[in-house]
Computed example of a mutant assay.
Amino acid sequence: MPKLTAKQTKKDSGADMRAFGPLFNKDLGQHILKNPLVAQGIVDKANLNSSDVCLEVGPGTGNLTVKILAQAKKVVAVEMDPRLAAELQKRVNGTPEQRKLHIMLGDFMKTELPYFDVCISNTPYQISSPLVFKLLEHRPLFRCAILMFQREFALRLVAKPGDELYCRLSVNVQLYAKVDHVMKVGKNNFRPPPQVESSVVRLEPKNPPPPVDPKEFDGLLRILFVRKHKTLAANFKQTTVLNMLEQNYKTYCSAHDMMVEADFDIKTMVLGILDSIDMSLVRAAKLDLDDFLKILLTFNRANIHFT
């Protein structure tokens, strides 16, 4: 096969962009990964086995899909845009990979997901957070997910105590998964280029998952991360927080046939709990996962809940 010159490659690339240009819908956050080396790097990070079923979210025109098909047993691609789904199907028709590809047309967030071993996603930015939590709630647990996000979102996922971007999202995700930053991806690797830089993370669910009620855990984090640099005592002293916790406590007591003490005072009780574990003067921005779990357990043992 004759080798293409740089001029011919540039010409072909331009034709490719013109051909697919009308297909892209910026409202759906469609930015197709065009760099084959980056695409291969992402697939390599998944460490696919020949027996794996891979879930791909937002396959677009299939630049990642064809590389996954070469290594996996089956690819289930969830695509919202019927035009892109048709392009992807056309791309594999008549090839040995055709039988390995199953396209699910529809909104990922409304789609009932099948079994899969690995997930790979060039994620539409507007569904980044819902996508992560939908994956973490999926059963049976998958082995890992290789996910592309807007860089700041990715850095929030992997942030540690004391980091500027450490937040409620960081702690909620790290409760259920080990998260690592694996690759930066510049905006010029996409067609059309997005306005922000991207990063790829590897997410590996903890198996078995910790026996923690996610809504209750998030309820605690909501209180603590509203003002993450304030002391925990200051956050818990807010009137709205105290009123909510008092209502929850009384509801719990009623449901369990327990009497509420005549001299009951929620503020005294809450601050006493924090003092008992030396957490009154610490700040959420510096606490780690074990600290948050200790706080939740101590409050729950005192029959105070956050949902």
Rank of each mutant, 00 (worst) to 15 (best):
F236Q: 04
F236C: 09
F236T: 07
F236H: 04
K237I: 00
K237P: 01
K237Y: 04
Q238I: 05
Q238M: 05
T239P: 03
T240G: 03
V241C: 04
V241P: 03
V241F: 00
L242D: 04
N243S: 15
M244T: 14
M244Y: 08
E246D: 11
Q247Y: 03
Q247T: 13
Q247E: 13
N248L: 07
Y249N: 01
Y249T: 01
K250W: 10
K250P: 01
K250G: 00
Y252Q: 07
C253L: 12
C253G: 00
C253H: 11
S254R: 15
S254G: 00
S254E: 15
S254L: 15
D257T: 14
D257I: 10
D257F: 11
M258D: 03
M258I: 11
M258Y: 14
M259E: 14
M259H: 07
M259R: 13
M259I: 15
M259S: 10
V260F: 13
V260M: 05
V260N: 06
E261P: 00
A262P: 00
D263S: 15
F264A: 05
F264D: 06
F264K: 14
D265E: 14
K267A: 12
K267N: 07
K267H: 07
T268I: 09
T268S: 10
M269Y: 08
M269T: 15
V270K: 04
V270N: 09
V270D: 05
G272V: 04
L274R: 02
L274Y: 06
L274K: 07
L274H: 06
D275G: 04
D275A: 15
S276E: 03
S276Y: 07
I277P: 04
I277L: 10
I277H: 06
I277K: 07
I277W: 06
I277Q: 09
D278Y: 01
D278W: 02
M279I: 03
M279V: 09
M279C: 09
S280G: 02
S280P: 00
L281C: 07
L281S: 13
V282T: 13
V282Q: 06
V282P: 00
V282N: 01
R283P: 06
R283A: 03
A285N: 01
A285Q: 02
A285R: 01
K286W: 01
L287V: 05
D288W: 04
D288H: 05
D288C: 00
L289T: 03
L289S: 08
L289W: 10
L289M: 12
D290G: 04
D291G: 11
D291M: 11
D291L: 11
D291V: 05
F292M: 14
F292D: 14
F292Y: 12
K294Q: 11
I295Y: 02
L296D: 05
L296K: 10
L296Q: 10
L296S: 02
L297Q: 13
L297D: 13
L297Y: 05
T298W: 01
T298M: 04
T298K: 11
F299P: 08
F299W: 12
N300W: 12
N300F: 08
R301A: 03
R301H: 09
A302N: 13
A302V: 09
I304N: 02
I304T: 01
I304L: 12
H305Q: 13
H305I: 12
F306E: 11
